[in-house]
Computed example of a mutant assay.
Amino acid sequence: MKTTTDHAHSTAHYFVPEPSLYPVILSAGMFLLALGFIQMLNDFGAGSWVMLAGTAVILTVLFAWFGKVIGESQSGAYRDWEDRSFRHGMIWFISTEVMFFAAFFGALFYVRVLSVPTLGGMEAAHGFSLWPEFAGTWPTSGPGGAPFTPMGAWGIPALNTALLLSSGATITWAHWGLLRDNRRQLILGLAATVLLGVVFLGFQAWEYHHAYTELGLTMGAGAYGATFFMLTGFHGFHVTLGTIMLAVILLRSISGHFTAKRHFAFEGVAWYWHFVDVVWLILFVFVYWV
């Protein structure tokens, strides 16, 4: 039974990092990234450069900040209390990501089920119509919008679904290897997951090129184009972050940083990757298929 003295002793060892400017600098980089993106959408010449500057700031801070955290972990600064805090923090972080994507799926639902049919049926319901030639069917580029061809589900999207499902299996296999102290299985599983993530991103880039050059499907293609690129684009951004994190975990695994009992960094990234997989399955159904 743990005594009060033992409890106080363990509490005293909770690691508290020194004050840092990393959060402030990271916030500035995110602001520049968002500002540049908005400027680029409005054809402001310097928008792409502002985005590039924001991306550079974010990457620099992430590598420096997480490098410091890795050093603290390897020095033995983190114990059971810190491990529980990290797990709670990761759970809350993924919860915010769930709400983030729920907002975009909610927008898609509102447009498809409520807004577009209502606008298309105004003449029948109220005897007048703001846009008499608007049919109100999905997919649509809106009244007077440019024609486009919607993205089909079978082909690259279906292949990308298979890739992400496979990556969920390979990272789980890597986790089993870590729990059994099988370093070879851990490294091979992580390497396969990183490769699958990179291939997924490559196919998505090709899909975007095909959409813009051959289908007429752009961000300006009305409600369909906006929701398609916002959902798939933000998901692709999360896959990019996840792939980078997996690559870092792979390098750390090769360096022997994890043990069967101490490997929260691996688990945190694995949780994130499984979350990305689930979001893609929902996205595939409601954006590409239905």
Rank of each mutant, 00 (worst) to 15 (best):
K2W: 07
T3K: 01
A12F: 09
S20W: 04
S20M: 10
L21W: 08
P23G: 11
S27C: 05
A34D: 04
A34F: 03
W49A: 09
M51A: 05
M51I: 02
G54Q: 04
V69Q: 07
I70C: 05
G71V: 05
S73D: 11
Q74W: 05
E82T: 12
R84C: 07
S85P: 02
H88V: 13
G89E: 02
I91R: 02
G106P: 07
Y110A: 15
R112A: 12
S115V: 10
P117A: 06
L119D: 09
S129L: 11
L130D: 08
P132H: 02
A135Q: 14
G145Q: 02
A146V: 08
P147M: 12
F148M: 13
L165I: 14
S166N: 04
A174K: 02
L179I: 13
N182K: 09
R183P: 02
R184G: 02
T193K: 00
Q204R: 10
E207P: 08
E207N: 11
E207S: 12
L217S: 06
L241T: 11
T243I: 04
V248F: 07
I254N: 01
H257N: 04
F258H: 07
H263C: 07
H263R: 08
H263Y: 04
A265S: 08
W271I: 06
Y272H: 08
V279N: 06
V285G: 04
F286C: 05
V287P: 03
Y288C: 11
W289E: 08
